[in-house]
Nucleic acid binder design. Structure first.
Lengths: 223, 223
DNA sequence: CGGGTACTTGACAATGGTCAAGTGTGGTGG
DNA sequence: CCACCACACTTGACCATTGTCAAGTACCCG
């Protein structure tokens, strides 16, 4: 199971053995907190099954999702290498199984095995790239553009299919796009009434891919 | 000179020698492009002296600064470990000297020297933490809050001094805060007229630190 | 001294957030 | 099996924040 985790690809069997002895196996119900911003980190996590959201909270309770963790991905590694405390919160949005790896044993291992270090560098780099895109969207695009980009992303992830399924609630999608459910609802409504998409529950059908691409590229959205 | 770069701290002399033979030394005037988004990366950079901005551009030319690189810092490492192309642009904002390290030689070295890998992991982690904060500010704070946070950051960086010096133009500060010069100018004006700060050119005097902290924490800004 | 850039200020428009009041809808317990 | 409750979502009216456009001022550098 551990050897199937992408982060540990290429490791020797004996080192997998070693890592297994130190780790902990945890179960979470939906909506439970895995880690909180500011906490001192004693290790990092790998999501085995389920779904976890990484997010920031404003003082008055607004939430910005930074990342949705999928099975096989790690999270909470940043304080292992810098700072010591978690920069954001993590909470399950489904019943989830999580492996916890204590800091010391892992740091020990990473210094011995270059492939583990390279895997971790690749993972952090992907994360940087993705956060860079999030900043770009928040700062340089309006909500319709962000939504269009997300729809295209889901479509591409599904092999370019014209019908996609939002895998989260619309409230969470709003939080991921840096807006609120009301605004998202309105924009989905407008896009529907213009014949760009058709929405039914969590299913979205792409009716005019060109128009969606234009929106994603910053084209103005006229009512 | 190379051994003074934080990223290379802890390396053996012979490995420093090795790295020096492969690197290139480049000079840039103010306002020159060091790398462009989407370009295929053949290596990464370390800023020796001067100043570099890392930024994203919207299709219609609006700019969002992601990071201001200081002397000694590296940039452009992400595609070394994931993706292959640069996720953003880099341009000098002062006359600058830059060392370029080709990909192959560096990857070779990093796999042999755990301390180099750890330094790089620490650097990427710091970057992630900082980008996370940028997302938080863009999404969860209004412009006065972001400005207040930046002023406090500069003050803390200067040992808690009550008089700080903006080390960039106000136009660039606007781009760093995810807004435009007009808006920044107005907000600086309001904060001045309320006696929270005093602005003179690039000098800002903190007159009411408590009020600035409140703003930074999300307190509403009443005119 | 001149020219370009940085910055400021004003009037205006629009994006998107707030508040409030619905309308489903799925799951649980009676 | 149905009723009800909680929660997700939608819709409307309103308004705050901030961006746009335009014009004018200050300032630095040659």
């Amino acid at each position: 199971m551990v050897s199937g985790i992408p982060l540990f690809r290429g490791l020797q069997h004996e080192q997998i053995e070693l890592i297994v002895t130190s780790m902990a196996d945890q179960m979470f119900d939906r909506g439970q907190t895995v880690l909180s911003e500011g906490e001192t980190a004693t290790g990092f996590f790998v999501l085995v099954s389920g779904r976890v959201k990484i997010f920031k909270l404003s003082p008055d309770g607004k939430e910005q999702i930074l990342h949705l963790v999928c099975a096989g991905e790690s999270f909470g590694e940043v304080p292992m290498f810098a700072g010591g405390h978690f920069p954001a919160n993590a909470e399950t949005i489904e019943k989830s199984r999580v492996f916890f790896f204590p800091r010391a044993a892992f740091l020990d291992l990473i210094q011995k095995d270059p492939s583990l270090a390279m895997n971790m560098l690749a993972e952090l780099s992907r994360r940087l790239r993705q956060l860079t895109r999030l900043v770009e969207e928040l700062s340089l695009k309006e909500v319709p553009g962000r939504l269009a980009a997300h729809i295209l992303y889901l479509s591409n992830a599904g092999g370019g299919a014209d019908e996609i399924e939002l895998d989260i609630t619309k409230g969470q999608l709003a939080s991921l796009l840096g807006t609120i459910p009301e605004t998202l609802s309105r924009i989905l409504g407008k896009m529907s009434s213009q014949g760009i998409i058709a929405v039914q529950g969590r299913k979205v059908r792409l009716l005019d891919r060109k128009a969606i691409e234009d929106l994603s590229a910053g084209e103005k959205f006229v009512i």
